[in-house]
């Protein structure tokens, strides 16, 4: 018990860092994913702004980067991180890599959920003389909001997973804490404490997502 008290302050600090990395990664990656996913949806064949060439290009980019295992992606993207955030190591570089990877992952989730919107309601809006941007804003996104909330919840958990390997670039946070101080130093208490905290956070996120989605879907 006293050992637990001993590690508690550090555990709290590392939890805070992880939440920060996940939060920023989701904020940037979530917005990026929404833009790219919506882009894929509107430019596809039969879409409201069908642009076969643009779609092909977006699709290619997403398909190329999304399947790369994150640990390799993060290492490979280091030069770009140096260019964009000014450093190739530490939490800023980790957040950069996570945001980028999350953008590609979330883009697919967004695209899939938008595709499931009834084309009939889009046609109805077109018949009323609504333009493409209005239709995206007031029809497509609101109609898909329920599944989108669930999709983003799924993405948060994937991003928590990504944040665990931030240590590779000298980043910190709960995952790094568990690996460096727990696993590598045979301190099971630290490994398991970090794990419990992560599980609890994931559960809370899922619960929140479910509640929100239920409210949006009214069922």
């Amino acid at each position: 018990m006293s050992e637990l008290l001993e590690i508690a302050p550090e555990l709290a600090v590392q939890t805070g860092i992880m939440l920060q990395i996940v939060g920023l990664g989701m904020l940037i990656g979530g917005a990026g994913g929404l833009v790219v996913g919506t882009g894929l949806y509107v430019t596809r064949h039969g879409g409201i702004l069908a642009q076969p060439v643009l779609f092909w290009l977006l699709n290619l980019v997403v398909n190329t980067f999304r399947p790369i295992p994150f640990i390799i992606f993060m290492a490979a993207i280091q030069p770009l991180a140096r260019l964009v955030v000014g450093t190739g190591i530490g939490n800023p570089a980790a957040i950069f890599a996570i945001s980028l990877a999350a953008t590609f992952g979330i883009a697919r989730i967004v695209e899939q959920n938008l595709v499931s919107v009834d084309p009939g309601v889009i046609e109805a809006a077109r018949a009323m003389g609504a333009g493409p941007w209005r239709i995206i804003r007031t029809v497509v996104l609101p109609e898909a909001l329920g599944p989108l909330v669930l999709g983003y919840t799924f993405a948060v958990i994937a991003v928590v997973d990504m944040s665990a390997v931030a240590g590779l670039l000298g980043g910190t946070g709960l995952g790094n804490y568990a690996i460096t101080y727990g696993y590598r130093q045979f301190d099971d208490l630290i490994t398991w404490s970090a794990l419990v905290v992560i599980v609890v956070i994931v559960q809370l996120v899922q619960l929140l997502g479910n509640v929100l989605a239920r409210r949006v879907l009214r069922r």
Binding site: D118, G120, V121, E123, G131, V139
Partner: peptide
């Protein structure tokens, strides 16, 4: 753009209603 302005003056109803669920 001009077509959309004309469409605003034409109502349409559908077999499956196509109301916004949101």
């Amino acid at each position: 753009r001009a077509l959309r302005r004309q469409q605003q003056g034409i109502g349409m109803i559908f077999q499956r209603f196509h109301l916004l669920r949101s």
